[in-house]
């Protein structure tokens, strides 16, 4: 919340300063901001709607159920869940903490968090529209591989 306020103060201050220096440029900047907002709106509404559907159809209890077994297949499933789902941090971290408390393995929980943060399948179409297909594919593929490495290391070091 504090962060939001800071962001607004920064934006308003910059806007006022810009307006005093050059009205025309400021108008252009605002028009640009508005246009990029309109451009992103359809994809954003889709993604936000999808998050709601995912949270309803795959409730935290179902994700928690994946953590029952520590088999390689279970781990793979968890990493895929992390890569595919898009869960906001304020839900994901409490969920991860409760999983740990319920006895889930640290590596498994770390895989869930790292893949969740480093791979975005749901947002890939939007990423493609900004940076192209090859960029998106490789950025996410590298993210997935590195997420597995990072969580394996975390499991070894912290356990």
């Amino acid at each position: 919340m504090l962060f939001n306020i800071f962001l607004y103060i920064l934006a308003v201050a910059a806007l006022l300063y810009s307006f005093r220096r050059d009205r025309q440029k400021t108008k252009k900047a605002l028009k640009m901001a508005w246009n990029s907002f309109l451009n992103m709106l359809p994809a954003m509404l889709g993604i936000i709607g999808l998050i709601g559907v995912i949270l309803a159809l795959v409730p935290p209890e179902v994700i928690a159920g994946l953590f029952g077994s520590n088999s390689p297949f279970g781990i793979l499933l968890i990493s895929l869940a992390g890569a595919v789902t898009l869960i906001p941090a304020f839900i994901a971290f409490p969920l991860a903490a409760s999983l740990l408390q319920a006895g889930a393995g640290l590596t498994a929980v770390a895989i869930f968090i790292t893949t969740l943060l480093m791979v975005g399948i749901v947002t890939a179409p939007l990423e493609v529209s900004f940076f192209g297909r090859k960029f998106t594919l490789w950025r996410n593929a590298l993210g997935f591989a590195l997420a597995l490495v990072i969580s394996a290391l975390m499991g070894v070091i912290l356990q």
Binding site: L7, A11, G52
Partner: peptide, 27 residues
């Protein structure tokens, strides 16, 4: 409800970020 909550969150920080990007672009 989850979508609405999330939308509210998003609408809160999107305006300043987009305004700053616009200003960055012209200045």
């Amino acid at each position: 409800k989850s979508s609405m909550d999330y939308l509210e969150e998003m609408l809160l920080f999107i305006p300043p970020i987009f305004v700053l990007v616009g200003l960055l672009d012209v200045w």
